[in-house]
């Protein structure tokens, strides 16, 4: 059978969020090996001495100052609950990231208390926030058992795909 780039993308995305160190897939002549862990110096470092062609050849280095204003606040957003950052992350903390791009909400509706706050215990299936895309609400679960140690995103603001939202420490 044919294994095309789309299939590879599907495999890689299915593995996203799965805890593995070594993954091997063999189908006929095809062999895919994925390993996770410390960076291995396998690929040569990209040459930084390439010539700069007329329009576009070398990576632009500096980014112009981004002063794009965030969009108008969501009309239903309550007084914005800002990120809570009590301390440095512990070594066993897990970072929960946004599964999709959208607007981050910490509570079910404006005025309600947040799903979780720093210090709250969570189970794997505890809903910790919602991400809204054009009126479609997607609940996000903790995915780990533990205690919320940090809230990394601001209520009512746009979060990107895979942007860190919460840190969860080990259950005490």
């Amino acid at each position: 059978m044919q294994f095309d780039p789309e299939d590879l993308a599907l495999v890689l995305e299915s593995l996203d969020g799965v805890d593995y160190q070594h993954f091997q897939l063999e189908m006929g002549d095809l062999r895919i090996v994925l390993t996770r862990g410390p960076e291995t110096p396998a690929s040569p470092a990209p040459s930084a001495s390439g010539p700069a062609p007329d329009t576009a050849g070398s990576r632009p280095e500096s980014k112009p100052a981004a002063d794009i204003q965030p969009g108008t606040p969501h009309p239903t957003a309550a007084a914005s609950t800002t990120a809570e950052r009590p301390g440095a992350p512990g070594p066993d903390d897990k970072t929960i990231t946004a599964p999709i791009l959208g607007t981050f909400y910490r509570s079910p509706k404006p005025g309600d208390p947040p799903y979780v706050s720093v210090g709250d215990p969570v189970e794997t299936d505890t809903v910790i926030c919602i991400v809204e895309v054009m009126k479609l609400m997607t609940p996000v679960t903790a995915g780990h058992r533990g205690v919320v140690t940090e809230v990394l995103a601001t209520d009512g603001e746009l979060v990107e795909f895979e942007q860190p939202l919460f840190r969860i420490g080990p259950a005490s």
Partner: peptide, 17 residues
Amino acid sequence: SMPAALADRTVVLGGAR
């Protein structure tokens, strides 16, 4: 990508597909 470095702001929409 190079365009990501050139834009005033870049946001990640979703997965590779």
